[in-house]
Nucleic acid binder design. Structure first.
Lengths: 230, 230
DNA sequence: GTTATTCGTTACAATGTTTTAACCTAAAAA
DNA sequence: TTTTTAGGTTAAAACATTGTAACGAATAAC
């Protein structure tokens, strides 16, 4: 997976540096903004995966920033973690009310920060992909159960590897739709995964073999890619 | 369904407020008590659907409160979620032994709290008033008693550690379902607990060893995680 | 304080999976 | 028909995942 970009909106330079240092050390890309206006501008120009937001800001305050982000459809799904000082309970509540996803009370240890950040991104990631996961796909005599990672042809269970399973689930999830080899790679291994497209052919070959006659549902579209027949 | 009434027993006002706010936002009715005695009085005067209980309380402590509630037939079916600080593992076990239904380690995010609470109420709701004990899982020759933290293979009792027990209960609670290592960590240690996923392998190894032949029910799903066979 | 327990980490070997590259065949284009 | 191109098939190499043991830190029990 590509490095995630984190936007820090914080006016105190020391904290900004501290946080930024730790994030970079943990493998994130970091952008900084010293106030709300600058933060918004950063959002406009870059793809941000998560915002770390100090509530006490000069100019536009944290709550306002939070509201603005969450009210902009384009950014509303970006998770926000508030960094809050003691005695800002009022603001914490207000922030959560305006759509912030979590808060970390100051002083916080870098470890806690990283842990929470990762947890949040993980949760976002899960629910994001879950949309494609129609729990159980039934098509022709095939049953594809994502929850148990199991495929059946009729009543016979077929043992598939992770990649084979993912490809089958992808194709069968949209019968009739043609996927290019690159699309399959992107979906199954993530963008920025570098392989020869031909690797997919080998996977499809194995898949067809294991599925037996049902393997014929996986059709080759010459010059384009593969699809599952409907 | 009518709004569910939640009783918060917690002496720290900040936390009380924060939790209460989030519960209200999620559509619950909330009552608060600053200590155990007050909590009992609330129970007497109102119909409570779930109790959120801080273990560190002035006066009557959390465990005692827990015991009292669970020993009163009238209240014994009310689920209790403990809010526990780090380093209270002893108390967690003790609490679970005295009938608490779940625990959430501090610091917790409001979202996690809500999620767990809803999950618990759903479980209680499913089994209904009819079946009091949804706490014991029986599968194959295994008996897993969450209430008293005990596992038996046939008639032989197996001594498991907290973590091993939780993992087993999680997997066996949904046979056939595949859990990723990360899901197991989130469920067992709380969502922002940072460990290598491989720590789960080691736990599973120990678990299989202790369970003997029954350990074979814990299946490895290569590339994904583990599951309990059904 | 000392000892025992639990849990996370790391290292290594064993095993399984995925990619590559090669060659072969079938379909389209010339 | 011949040439070109895309896809099928296979084996070997590269890579990833898992089981397992050993170590160490943190905590609880003595």
């Amino acid at each position: 997976m590509a490095k995630e970009q984190i936007l820090i909106v914080e006016d105190d330079e020391d904290i900004q540096q501290l946080v930024s240092f730790n994030l970079i050390k943990s493998g994130f890309h970091v952008l900084c903004a010293g106030n709300g206006e600058q933060g918004i501008r950063r959002l406009e120009s870059e793809k941000i995966d998560c915002i770390l937001l100090d509530l006490m800001l000069p100019g536009m305050n944290g709550i306002e920033f939070c509201r603005k982000v969450k009210n902009t459809p384009e950014y509303s799904s970006i998770p926000i973690i508030m960094l809050t000082a003691k005695g800002e309970e009022e603001d914490i509540i207000s922030g959560l009310e305006h759509g912030a996803d979590d808060y970390i009370p100051k002083p916080f240890s870098p470890k806690v920060l990283i842990a929470r950040l990762k947890a949040l991104l993980r949760r976002k990631g899960d629910s994001g992909e879950a949309e494609e996961n129609a729990e159980t796909i039934k098509i022709h005599e095939l049953t594809i159960d994502s929850g148990r990672h199991e495929v059946q042809v009729g009543d016979v269970e077929i043992k598939l590897t992770m990649t084979e399973f993912s490809i089958l689930a992808l194709l069968a999830g949209r019968p009739g739709w043609v996927f290019s080899r690159q699309q399959i790679i992107d979906a199954v291994r993530g963008y920025d995964y570098m392989v020869t497209p031909r690797a997919i052919d080998v996977q499809v070959f194995g898949l067809r073999k294991k599925l037996g006659t049902a393997g014929e549902y996986i059709e080759t579209v010459r010059g384009i890619g593969y699809r599952f027949s409907d």
